[in-house]
């Protein structure tokens, strides 16, 4: 048991070393460049090596049931120093942030984009009640709790939100580390993108804001301060935005789009 854990720690150190030595990579794709940070290599290496086909010999010991569940159970605690770092980033800029505080507030409403953009696509692809779960939000713990309370997880809505949760957990960080700098190339202000990075998921926010910071090194402190202030705001307001704005908007749009089909199932 103990031996496996030591192996696991050595493995983590090895992955960090490899990821850091690969370093910051810039892959030009026409006019746009994709930035890959060590954190992306770290998550890719650990995920690929954890696939069933590699789980033999030493990797079977490293990815033992106990070690994987340790990583899952304590991931939040491993993230705490990062959250503590954010305080130091926000504090010197707090005045500046409060001055444009209303922008931070209104951009929270932008999280409705999951419904506005996601729901029509889902309906177009033929999804129905599954779409309710899959587009209510980013599919993190908040949406998971709301959907499971209202519909249970063993319903179409529940399967929708669970699928989104799994996809977000696996690919969210990688997706945003690539997507955020693309938006920068499209002409968005880095401050706006930094604020948008506080979406309510720690790893996605970290991925988005660090790849922005890597693209504009001179702005690092502003980017991190804005992203973490917005993230903190999302953890305060996220539930309210979901219950009072996203849910009614989603029901309205759903009714309009599936008019003439099976009626909307009224939920308790």
């Amino acid at each position: 048991m103990k031996k496996n854990f030591i192996l696991f720690l050595i493995f983590a150190l090895a992955v960090i070393t490899i990821a850091e030595f690969i370093g910051f990579q810039r892959i030009p794709l026409g006019p746009i460049a994709i930035n890959l940070l060590p954190l992306v290599f770290a998550i890719l290496i650990t995920m690929v090596l954890g696939m069933a086909i590699f789980r033999k010999g030493i990797f079977k010991k490293i990815y033992s049931e106990k070690n994987v569940s340790f990583a899952g159970k304590y991931l939040i605690f491993i993230m705490l120093p990062l959250m503590a770092r954010y305080g130091a980033d926000v504090a010197p800029k707090l005045q500046e942030i409060l001055q444009i505080g209303w922008i931070f507030l209104i951009q929270e409403i932008g999280n409705l984009g999951t419904v506005l953009l996601g729901l029509p696509v889902a309906i177009f692809l033929g999804l129905r009640r599954e779409a309710i779960g899959a587009t209510l939000g980013l599919g993190r713990e908040g949406e998971l709790a709301y959907i499971s309370e209202k519909y249970t997880l063993d319903s179409d809505e529940g399967r929708g939100v669970l699928s989104l949760y799994i996809i977000g957990t696996l690919f969210g960080a990688v997706f945003f580390s690539i997507f955020a700098p693309i938006m920068l190339h499209l002409g968005f202000r880095v401050e706006a993108l930094a604020m948008a990075s506080g979406m309510g998921s720690g790893s996605m926010m970290t991925a988005a804001s660090s790849s922005l910071a890597a693209s504009m090194p001179g702005m690092e402190s502003t980017i991190i301060a804005y992203a973490s202030a917005s993230q903190l705001l999302t953890s305060f307001l996220g539930t309210f935005t979901m219950v009072f704005l996203a849910v009614p908007l989603q029901q309205l749009m759903y009714k309009l789009m599936v008019r003439g089909e099976k009626p909307w199932k009224k939920a308790a």
Binding site: M47, L75, I78
Partner: peptide, 13 residues
Amino acid sequence: TTPILTFAGISVV
């Protein structure tokens, strides 16, 4: 960030 994502990767396998 790198150690966090290392553990995140292991936790989702």
